[in-house]
Amino acid sequence: MPYRYLEDIATADVAFEAWGKDLGELFAEAADATTNVMVEGLASIKRKETIDIELRNPELDILLYNFLNELVYLKDARRLLLRAYDITVEKEWPDFRLKAKVSGEAIDHARHRLKADVKAVTLHRLSVRETPEGWKATVVLDI
């Protein structure tokens, strides 16, 4: 499973671990883990609208934090539930640069089984690290 929710580090909120063979895959899985907190069944999100996101930051974990916060912002500002496609994260000294196409559609109460609202991505125990199998991230969401 490319992400899993953790029980023991966020009593009142939601924590997850995500994995990917490269950084692009890791960020896409983290995006799914975040969206999946808000809606049951990611397959119910149709690809009606695509937004390009470009971000840069010298720290990988802050880059992930900013990327996920962008999804939270779009959920409120444009009422969009989004998944990440065509995503690359590359070193471009001194920063890491993210280029992503996120696609999805506006919240439809009739069709989407909505769960908890994500208020914010937090820096609590935030990490992105390389493992022998690829990349792994830990993220805590305030809900």
Partner: peptide, 18 residues
């Protein structure tokens, strides 16, 4: 601007969670 965009149409809503 982002904060305004997130909140301007949410006045009078309860939210979720607790």
């Amino acid at each position: 601007r982002k904060a305004v965009e997130r909140g301007f149409d949410q006045v009078g809503t309860l939210g979720s969670g607790n």
